[in-house]
C-alpha cells in the first residue's frame, strides 16, 4: 500500500529553515510580554488595597502583598520600570564607553596610553561599589541609579571598543581613506565605528542583562528612593519580611528577573552569531 506524501506542515517548515530555527522565539515572546504588559498596566491603580497577603487566586493570579496590593499588576508595571532603568543604563555605558574606546584605539600613542590606563583604574572598582558611591554622592533617585549602573559599565565597553578600533584603524581601507585626506573624526565616524558596531551591539545585549541585575540589586537595597513605585528589585526586598507567610511574593519578581536576564542573553548570543 502506498500513500501520498503529506503536505509539509508550517511547523516543520519553520524548523527546517536554519534562519528561522535559530531565532530565539521564546526569548522574544517573553520580552514582548514584559514590555506590552508593562505598557498596558501603566494607567492601572497600583496602590488599591485588597486583602493583605492573599495567596494566588483567579482574581489575583499572583496573590497580594502585605499592603493588599495585586502582585501581578505590580509585577507588570515594575517590569517596565526595571527594563527602562537597565536600558537607559546600557545606553549610557555603551555611548560613553564606545567613544572612550574608539578614541583610544584609533588615536594610539600617548593618548591611548592615558585612556587605557585610566580605564584600568575604572575597571578595578567593582561595578556595584562604584554605583553605591555615585548614589551616596547624588542621592537616591531612579535617575541616579541609571547613572550609577551606566557608569559602572563604561569600562568594559571602552576596552572592547578600543581593541576593535585598534584592529580596524590599521586596515588598508582606513589608511587609504587617510591618504585621500579624510580627517580623524571622519575616519572614526565613517570607517572605524561602523566596523566595530557588530561587536559592540552584541555586547550591549549581554551587558543589558548585567545592567538589569545591577539596577534591581540597587533597588533591592532600598536605594530607589520611592517605595510606592514598584520595580522587581524592590518587590524582592519587600517580600523578605513576609517570606515564611507568603513565599509567592518572592517567587514572582525573582522568576521574572531570571527569565528576563536569560531571554536577553539568548538574544545577545543570537545577534553575536550570525
Amino acid at each position: 500500500m502506498t500513500s501520498r506524501p503529506s503536505p509539509p506542515r508550517l511547523a516543520s517548515l519553520m524548523t527546517q529553515d536554519p534562519r528561522v530555527r535559530r531565532t530565539p522565539w521564546i526569548a522574544l515572546a517573553w520580552l514582548a510580554i514584559v514590555l506590552l504588559g508593562g505598557m498596558l498596566s501603566a494607567g492601572a491603580a497600583l496602590n488599591v488595597p485588597f486583602e493583605s497577603l492573599a495567596p494566588p487566586s483567579p482574581i489575583h493570579p499572583l496573590g497580594t502583598d502585605l499592603l493588599g496590593r495585586d502582585v501581578g499588576l505590580r509585577l507588570l508595571a515594575g517590569g517596565l520600570r526595571t527594563l527602562r532603568m537597565a536600558a537607559a543604563a546600557t545606553l549610557i555605558a555603551a555611548t560613553l564607553g564606545s567613544i572612550w574606546g574608539l578614541v583610544a584605539g584609533h588615536a594610539g600613542g600617548w593618548l591611548e596610553w592615558l585612556l587605557v590606563h585610566a580605564n584600568d583604574v575604572l575597571l578595578s572598582v567593582p561595578g556595584l561599589v562604584l554605583a553605591l558611591v555615585v548614589i551616596a554622592a547624588l542621592g537616591q533617585h531612579e535617575a541616579t541609579i541609571i547613572l550609577a549602573v551606566g557608569l559602572g559599565g563604561v569600562g568594559s565597553y571602552a576596552r572592547l571598543a578600543r581593541s576593535a578600533a585598534a584592529e580596524t584603524s590599521h586596515r588598508p581601507f582606513v589608511m587609504a581613506a587617510r591618504a585621500l585626506g579624510a580627517g580623524e573624526v571622519r575616519l572614526l565616524q565613517h570607517h572605524v565605528f561602523p566596523n566595530t558596531l557588530e561587536a559592540l551591539s552584541a555586547y550591549a545585549l549581554l551587558h543589558f542583562g548585567w545592567a538589569l541585575v545591577n539596577s534591581a540589586s540597587l533597588t533591592f537595597l532600598g536605594l530607589g528612593g520611592a517605595p510606592s513605585i514598584p520595580d522587581w528589585g524592590q518587590m524582592l526586598n519587600e517580600s523578605r519580611l513576609v517570606f515564611l507567610s507568603a513565599p509567592w511574593l518572592a517567587a514572582a519578581p525573582g522568576t521574572a528577573l531570571a527569565l528576563t536576564v536569560l531571554a536577553v542573553q539568548r538574544l545577545g548570543e543570537w545577534v553575536g552569531k550570525p
Binding site: 496602590n47 499592603l67 532600598g222 517605595p227 510606592s228 519587600e238 519580611l241
Partner: peptide, 16 residues
C-alpha cells in the same frame, strides 16, 4: 522615611 522598622510600609499606607 528611613528603611527600617516598617517605615516604608507605613509610609505607603499613609500615601494610600
Amino acid at each position: 522615611i528611613p528603611p527600617w522598622g516598617f517605615n516604608p510600609q507605613v509610609g505607603q499606607m499613609l500615601e494610600q
